[in-house]
Amino acid sequence: MIRVILKRIGLAFLTLFGVTVIVFALLQMMPGEPIDSIVPLDASDALRQAIIEKYGFDKPLYVQYFCWLGNALRGNFGNSVSDNRLVLTIVSEALHNTLILALGASIVAFLLSIVIGVYSAYRPKSILSWVGTIFGIGGISIPNYCLSLILIGIFSVTLHVLPSNGMYFSGDYSFSSLLRHLILPALAAGAMTLGIMTRMVRSSVAETRNRSFVTTLRAKGLSEPAIMRHVLRNSFPTLLTVAGLQFGYLMGGSTMVETIFSWPGIGLIIYQSIFTSDFPTTQAAILIVAVIFVSINLIIDLLRIVADPRLRK
C-alpha cells in the first residue's frame, strides 16, 4: 500500500515537472519578445541592453528555465507588468475568489446530482428521473457562456433580482452581498458538473444495484434502507473520483463565466493578462492552476485507496 501511494506521489511530481516545462515553453512560443512588454519601444539601446541583462534574457533557455523555476518554487513570480503589484498577491487573491465560485458551484451541483441521481436509479420512471435526464443532456450540451447570458437575461435584465457583475455591491462587503453575486455565476459554472454528475450517480448506483451481492443482501433479509447503504458505499469510490475531477475543473477557473460576470478569479486573470501581455502573471496563473489540478488528482487517488479496500494491498 505504501508503495502504491509513493508511486502516485512520484507520478504527480513528474507531471508537475512536465507542466512547468510546458508553461515556460508556452510563453517562449508566444508572439513578441518578452522584453518588448517591459521596455517601451522607443527606449535607448543601452537601457534595453541593461534590462535584458537584469532579467537574464541573454542567457541560454535552460538557464532561464531553472532561474524561473527556482524563483517560482520560492513563490517569487516577480511583479506584474501592467500594475507592478506582486504577481503572487494578484494570483492568490484571484485563486481565493475562484475557490469561492468553485465551492458555490460544486456544492449545488454535488448535492442536487446525488439526490436526483440516486432517486432516479431507484425510480427510473419517476418525474425526477426525467428532470435528471434533462439536466444530464442540458448541462453537457449547453456551453456555459450561453447559459451565463441566458441567466443574466432572465434574472438581471428582465427580473432585476440578481446582479450580473462582480463579487460585491460597491461598499457592501457583507456575506449576503457576496451570496447574491455568487448565485448566477455558480449556476452557470456548475451546470456542466451537475449534468455529468447526475448521469454518473444514476448509472453507477443503478449498476451497483444489479450486482449479485445485492441479491444476497436481500436473501439475508436486510431492509431496503440497509441495502441502500451497501449500494451507496459501493458507488462511493467512483463518485468520489468524478466529483474530485469536476472540482478540479472548476478550480481551473471557468474563464468564460468569470469573464462574463467580471468575477475576479483565476480565469479572468489569465484572460486579462494574456491581452495585456503580462507574461509573469499569465505564467504564474497557469502554473498554479496546473499545480492545483495535479494536487486534486493526487488527493483523489489517495482518498480512493482509503475508500476502496480492494485497492489497499
Binding site: R211, F213, T216, R218, A219, K220, N234
Partner: peptide, 24 residues
C-alpha cells in the same frame, strides 16, 4: 418475506465469489 429471509429460510448462493459485499 424479509423477516423470513436469512432467519427461518436462508440460502447459500451458488456463486460465493460475488455473494459478499466487497466493501465490508
Amino acid at each position: 418475506m424479509r423477516e423470513l429471509r436469512g432467519d427461518r429460510i436462508s440460502m447459500i448462493y451458488q456463486d460465493s465469489l460475488s455473494a459478499l459485499d466487497p466493501m465490508y
